[in-house]
Design a protein around this nucleic acid. Structure first.
Length: 816
DNA sequence: AGCACGCCGACT
DNA sequence: GTCGGCGTGCTC
């Protein structure tokens, strides 16, 4: 597709663009001013209506003659970023938009760092000198409120967006104030995110003459040599304390021509290389063989690396990556949640130093922007990121790795596009012609059945350590034997011997909070969330705290009522266990065991996750009590015991892949035990000891679990033997949402043969939890044969009233 | 998203 | 009869 570069190219004086504005889906034509050189893929700023918005150049055109224009073209205002979308990258965007039934601009928005598609901003400013001393008493309350708010700021100046979200009748209020001339409204031109500048000290090439130069003092020579040893360049703010010198001394050396001090873009990439340097470790024969096979991979090959927990996949990744960096290529490593894998990030950092950068949504906008810019430089680097990092704009991509590829956080539920990073990675590997490694101890069934891939396995743990034996305890028998504790007798004795041997353990429980619900013992009333159709969980953060009730769907919380809201009875009791309850029961039954609670409540603040793990590893506690988080990225050799308090909560989730998820979670959490010198032990407590997922986890038998599960999937034509598309409807009005879903299903059934072929339309049906955060939710599930070509479904939106939110989720994992 | 244009109810 | 509310539609 190489269009010949002829002199005629200068005739392309206009450009079709995609504008970053909801409701403006088509392409718009703009004139290119003669002083700008625009190419397809550039990110532009264009005037659109009254504002300036971000836009992507799609293709260049010769401007239509003025006679045939029905409107006058406006000029492209400026170029925000040049030559970003390569042909491959563009194809990836289109493929995502097409497959996931999403407008292209939405995909582009997902891929770009926030703040790049800049918009002009409306601001409101107080005209202080116009305001009379005595305020008109007839001024409407909203207008008075707005006036008060504006007066709060020293400048009397706020963005319109801020004011609107702060105050309900802001529109009305503004008009009244504008009419009186007390405020003015003005537009601020969009400012694309700027790279930050900072002074840097860099050695020049003149260093060879250091020894010979007699004008240098010994101290100056020392500074130059130290700087050279430390890499030859530093930020000025680091160099002054780091070299134990002053700005004046450095300036003198700069004057002598040994170094330059100049402003440089500071990329807030956060790649501190304070981690101690480590070196490639000796591989086991299995690892070495896998590495060899990986190194033989060229082109768009997909590799499934199936390694048991503790098999040393990370070391294999590290050694597989090194040659790519040496060749000047970059590598993309996707992990489920970066915050949960500080150990992984640390290992990459200590192996590759500053060539590693992390990219995920918890970074500040500035950091994301800078990391993104750093990727565009094309310097060989390893980008470790979460789901959205699959769109990292690395020019020379040599390898993609998805670690823990079975993890469902690679799938986005909302907002659209509801993409799966694994699927996008497969396309990207094809487009970039580079290998893709999917790594897991419990591969997703989709990945397992993928036909065209290389299968590599690491069936043994490193140092021939055994997988921990798994004991399944039937909790019904515990009760019969008179044990009413949440800990089985086996777990109790295992905890004691663990402590006696000076080892550590993990206790896994599916729920956070203290108890899953609160109910009245007289009338059976259950306290529910006012916004969602779920019961409130009982929370008791620590022993002496005031208990409160919280909704795990919308975050609503309230105090614990002293009496039943329904019958006034004082006998309200909390049922079910969560992490808090486990911690407090432990404290009662095993006062000598110290535990750390490890769930999204205690790890919410920045760095808390890392700190808790550090404290635990340093011996501050014997046990880590937590939720799903325990299954990811914890690799501590001292852990010998893993207990699953109640596996049942995992088993009975209402979707087709509940068993797969339960098996994965149990296997992953079990895999945390016995990674060090001491052998591990796993105890799973359950009321369903015969459940296939439990039996498979007990025997570490991935293969037979999968075979069994695949039979079930095939019978019901669920993935990977069928394709699902979920249509989600939600809105504040229960009737309206239901009607919209019904109407759309009707429309779909009429059109069915043309669009869905042999597909099945299930529903519409209310979502398993009808109401979440005051929004009613309905679903239509499309179940299609694998070979069914699905046409464009985006047009369905037009059958849905705009008060009802409509989303298309292709290959949904979250069916609630 | 913003903003204009245009249609119905409370007021001079 | 007008002012001004807000609902529908366009922005190259």
């Amino acid at each position: 597709m190489s269009e010949s570069v002829t002199p005629e190219i200068s005739n392309f004086d206009s450009v079709e663009v995609l504008v970053d504005c909801p409701g403006a889906q088509g392409l718009y034509l703009y004139r290119i001013p003669s002083d700008l050189t625009v190419q397809p893929g550039d990110i532009l700023s264009v005037p659109f209506g009254s504002q300036q918005v971000g836009a992507i150049a799609i293709r260049l055109l010769r401007a239509p003659s003025p006679e045939q224009e029905s409107f006058t073209l406006r000029d492209v205002e400026g170029i925000i970023s040049h030559g970003f979308f390569s042909k491959n990258y563009w194809a990836l965007m289109e493929q995502v938009a097409d497959y996931y039934q999403t407008p292209l601009i939405q995909v582009i928005r997902t891929a770009l760092p926030p703040g790049l598609l800049a918009k002009s901003q409306r601001r409101i400013r107080l005209k202080v000198d116009q305001i009379p001393d005595t305020i008109d008493p007839f001024l409407s309350p909203p207008a008075q409120q707005l006036l008060v708010r504006l007066k709060q700021s020293a400048q009397g100046d706020y963005t319109w967006q801020y004011l609107q979200q702060k105050q309900k009748n802001a529109g009305l209020a503004l008009r009244q104030l504008l009419k009186r001339g007390w405020v003015e409204s003005y537009l601020v031109a969009p400012q694309a995110m700027q790279a930050k500048q900072q002074l840097a000290v860099t050695l020049t090439g003149a260093t060879q003459t250091i020894a010979a130069d007699s004008t240098l003092t010994d101290r100056q020579r020392e500074i130059l040599i130290t700087l050279g040893k430390q890499g030859g360049q530093q930020w000025l703010t680091d160099a002054v304390p780091g070299l134990k010198t002053s700005y004046a001394s450095l300036k003198k050396l700069a004057d002598k021509g040994y170094l330059v001090i100049e402003p440089r873009e500071i990329l807030r990439v956060g790649s501190h290389s304070d981690a101690p340097r480590d070196h490639p470790k000796a591989l086991t024969p299995d690892q070495a063989q896998v590495l060899q096979r990986l190194q033989a991979c060229v082109g768009p090959v997909q590799v499934l690396l199936h390694g048991v927990t503790g098999a040393g996949k990370t070391e294999v990744y590290l050694q597989a990556i090194a040659p790519y960096l040496a060749q000047g290529k970059s590598v993309l490593v996707l992990v489920p949640e970066i915050g949960l894998t500080p150990q992984l990030t640390d290992r990459f950092r200590s192996r590759f130093g500053t060539q590693v950068c992390v990219y995920h949504s918890a970074l500040s906008d500035g950091e994301r922007f800078d990391t993104w810019r750093h990727m565009l430089t094309g310097q060989p680097q390893v980008v470790i990121g979460t789901r959205s990092a699959i769109f990292a704009p690395l020019p020379h991509l040599g390898l993609i790795i998805l670690d823990e590829e079975h993890d469902s956080s690679f799938k986005q539920d909302s907002p659209i596009p509801c993409y799966h990073a694994r699927t996008v990675a497969q396309w990207r590997s094809q487009l970039e012609h580079c290998p893709l490694i999917l790594g897991s101890a419990t591969p997703a069934l989709d990945s397992w059945t993928h036909a065209k891939q290389t299968y590599l396995s690491l069936p043994q743990r490193v140092h021939a350590r055994p997988l921990p034996p798994v004991q399944v305890v039937d909790m019904r028998q515990e009760l019969q034997a008179g044990n009413r504790s949440i800990f089985s007798r086996s777990l109790q004795s295992a905890l004691e011997s663990m402590k006696a041997e000076g080892n550590k353990g993990l206790l896994f429980i599916h729920r956070r909070g203290h108890s899953s619900f609160v109910s009245c013992r007289e009338c059976g009333y259950v306290v529910e969330c006012p916004n969602c159709d779920v019961s409130l969980s009982y929370h008791l953060p620590h022993e002496n705290a005031t208990p409160f009730l919280q909704c795990h769907y919308c975050g609503y919380y309230q105090s614990h009522p002293p009496r039943c809201p329904s019958c006034e009875s004082p006998y309200l009791k909390n049922f079910g266990s969560g992490t808090q309850r486990v911690v407090s029961e432990l404290a009662q039954q095993f006062p000598h065991l110290k535990s750390i609670r490890f769930d999204s409540d205690t790890t919410r603040t920045k760095g808390a996750h890392r700190r808790l793990l550090y404290d635990f590893a340093q011996g501050e506690a014997d046990l880590l009590v937590g939720t799903q988080m325990l299954t990811k990225g914890i690799d501590l050799p001292q852990i010998t015991l893993v207990g699953v308090i109640a596996a049942d909560g995992l088993l009975y989730m209402a979707d087709y892949w509940a068993a797969e998820r339960a098996f994965q979670t149990l296997t992953q959490v079990a895999g945390r035990a016995g990674r060090g010198e001491h052998p591990g032990q796993v105890i799973i407590q359950t009321y369903s000891p015969e459940h296939p997922a439990i039996l498979a986890a007990k025997h570490h038998d991935y293969q037979s679990f999968v075979e069994q599960e695949l039979v079930f999937r095939q019978e019901l034509l669920y993935p990977p033997y069928g394709k699902l598309i979920l249509l989600r409807f939600s809105g504040h009005d229960a009737d309206q949402v239901e009607q919209a879903a019904l109407k759309l299903a009707d429309t779909l059934r009429q059109l069915d043969p043309q669009i869905l072929g042999a597909g099945e339309i299930l529903g519409p049906a209310p979502a398993p939890i009808l109401r979440v955060a005051k929004r009613y939710r309905w679903h239509i599930l499309l179940k299609l044969p694998l070979d069914q070509v699905v046409g464009d479904l985006k047009f369905l939106r037009q059958y849905c009233p705009k008060e009802v939110a409509f989303a298309i989720d292709v290959d949904p994992l979250n069916l609630s």
